[in-house]
Design a protein around this nucleic acid. Sequence first.
DNA 1: TGTTTCAAAATTATAGATAATTTCAAGAAT
DNA 2: ATTCTTGAAATTATCTATAATTTTGAAACA
Lengths: 208, 208
Amino acid sequence: MTTAKSDTISTRIGKTLAERIISGAIEAGSRLRQDHVAEEFGASHVPVREAFRLLESQGLVVSEPRRGVRVAGFTREEVREVAEMRASLEALALRNAFPHMTKTILDQAEEANRAGDRARDVYAWEEANRNFHRIILTPCGMPRLLKAIDDLQTASARFLFSGWRAEWEAPTDRDHRAILDALRTGQADLAASVLARHVQTVGRKGPK
Amino acid sequence: MTTAKSDTISTRIGKTLAERIISGAIEAGSRLRQDHVAEEFGASHVPVREAFRLLESQGLVVSEPRRGVRVAGFTREEVREVAEMRASLEALALRNAFPHMTKTILDQAEEANRAGDRARDVYAWEEANRNFHRIILTPCGMPRLLKAIDDLQTASARFLFSGWRAEWEAPTDRDHRAILDALRTGQADLAASVLARHVQTVGRKGPK
DNA sequence: TGTTTCAAAATTATAGATAATTTCAAGAAT
DNA sequence: ATTCTTGAAATTATCTATAATTTTGAAACA
């Protein structure tokens, strides 16, 4: 989506590579060679290495000391792990966001939800879905928590795009509505528990 | 503690700097200048920059584009945030560790707890405390989760060492025993909720 | 045919050098 | 006295070069 020129070369390289990994353009297990990447971006390998470190911190690549980095793979177990972490942290964020929730915010979330309904491919749907979650969680005002959730959502998107799920099915959107209803009627705990369960459904459908 | 020679120069630099930040040897807000650090370690700035990135991913420093990195500060709010994240994630880890819990593991935890009682300074106590948590959580077998918890524990240790709490008080150890008792009697949910509340007490006592 | 050895090629990690940006302090202007 | 320039020093970010390590592939051997 927004490639955004985040000043430094290494972050630009990092973001571009992240997109490719998430979308599946670079497949799991493949090696990323710094010279090749550097040449492609018309840069030297120093910023490339830093980009690799960024990707490593997001869990998108794994780095072995003198053997370079390769795109992280993911097993059924890892998918479940990410889903459980998301469930736990998003529920926490939502409970903390609740006191700061306004009608305006809920309306924005509703609109994001509708955008999801209109989505014609999985990429558009994922963007709308992520927006929905971001909108209702951001008011918690906990930057570290939001960053952690964002990284986990990125990982989830990888699984989604990897084709493990051919359909991105309607039930999820129904969950969204249930969450909004709970928030509108002041039931914070209910909203949080629906959200927690909802997030875990992403990890449900198994691969292979 | 264990400086560990993790092969590459950048990780060694990173670990050393991390220890200094955690222990308070380098105070919050101070700038880290790459040339100076490089000179001290007899290296060039390339590995130093990579070390900075590692520290950034752990939340120990903040980096502004062309202005370098400085040691992350922490407000009352951030302390609370980290505590809540820990509570949430450690409870998750414990619930998942529960099915794999053995008597041997519980005995090791008991021993770590006793080591905490014997500790004569806050550093020794923190190490024992961290061991206790690590021992009971590791069996969950969720590497990403454990890494996230580890980073949060590091942040917690910073707050602890920063002198916000003059005493590291007994109540925490009583919580440890309550957790062990619950685990021994098969009450997983009780253990998890005691752990969650326990972790949050670290963030309770205010600064200033 | 399959395995081992060994040297060339590729690749990573670090160092040294350069360009670009920011910081900081001294002096000018209001 | 305070705010605004301005330029030198410090610092960051990047590039080019070098050293060290790993990978690859072909030849020798069993």
